[in-house]
């Protein structure tokens, strides 16, 4: 059963990874505006392929 101690260690590493991702997202301003991204995703940029790639890059 003491293997659980090691498993807890691993699970914490994973959890810390997500916490770091969350903190990074907040710091980079992704939580500043919670309205426009939900609208923006619905625009299709059919006549503007170049812009699409820019936005894609940004989201990666």
């Amino acid at each position: 059963m003491s293997v659980i101690v090691i498993l807890i260690g691993f699970s914490l590493v994973v959890a810390l990874g997500f916490l770091w991702a969350f903190l990074w997202a907040v710091k980079s301003g992704q939580y500043d505006d919670d309205v426009s991204p939900s609208i923006r995703i619905l625009y299709d940029n059919e006549n503007d392929k170049s812009k699409q790639s820019i936005t894609n890059q940004k989201n990666v």
């Binding site: 500043d32 505006d33 309205v35 426009s36 609208i39 923006r40 619905l42 625009y43 820019i54």
Partner: peptide, 27 residues
């Protein structure tokens, strides 16, 4: 409204000197 966001983020179609525009709706 959403039209406002769309138009303001397409300012580059109105003038080629504008490279990119981004709306923060809440602010």
């Amino acid at each position: 409204c959403s039209s406002c966001i769309w138009l303001l983020e397409n300012l580059n179609s109105l003038h080629k000197g504008i490279m990119h525009s981004h709306v923060n709706f809440v602010r």
